[in-house]
């Protein structure tokens, strides 16, 4: 069944996240990051940063940091068991650090299909704001297999 294109323009339920040095430490360990500004609060402070630096792809993790990260696909009636991550991109405006509260404000910007509906694509664009200031744009394409 094709996803109804009426969902283009649908707002994603907003959420807020304050990244923690604790979680970023594990993220750094997993990705093999050895620069301490990414996991050590003292090293970050010594480098003149207000907190541990949030790495480039962690904005995706924070975008997913909610009880039902794919609530928008559920609203569209998609089977999450058939979902794949197709594309992910970011545009960066300001650096972000642990302890800074961020607001995630997303909208569905496109829905399309290929191969006669065998693959459907749902595009979500999220603005990440810190006290109202845009710090990052998060663009995600999820693929739903028939």
């Amino acid at each position: 069944m094709l996803i109804d294109k009426k969902h283009i323009g649908m707002k994603v339920p907003p959420h807020s996240v304050t990244p923690t040095a604790w979680q970023l430490k594990w993220f750094a360990k997993a990705t093999g990051e050895t620069n301490p500004i990414y996991f050590d609060e003292a090293a970050a402070a010594q480098a003149g940063l207000p907190g541990v630096l949030v790495p480039p792809t962690f904005f995706f993790c924070m975008d997913m940091d909610k009880d039902h990260p794919f609530d928008y696909l559920e609203t569209m009636g998609c089977d999450l068991g058939k979902m794949l991550h197709g594309e992910q991109s970011f545009v960066y405006h300001k650096p972000v650090h642990s302890g800074e509260k961020l607001d995630f404000d997303g909208v569905i910007t496109d829905i399309y299909d290929k191969k006669n509906g065998a693959l459907q694509f749902v595009v979500k664009d999220v603005k990440v704001l810190r006290q109202g200031e845009l710090v990052c744009d998060v663009h995600s394409v999820m693929v739903i297999r028939a």
């Binding site: 990705t31 093999g32 991109s89 960066y92």
Partner: peptide
């Protein structure tokens, strides 16, 4: 993608990255 992010931040300070997809 996290590994590729590290590839970038090992080459330039992160503040130099404008976009990454």
């Amino acid at each position: 993608m996290g590994y590729l992010g590290r590839l970038l931040t090992q080459w330039v300070p992160q503040a130099a990255i404008r976009s990454f997809g």
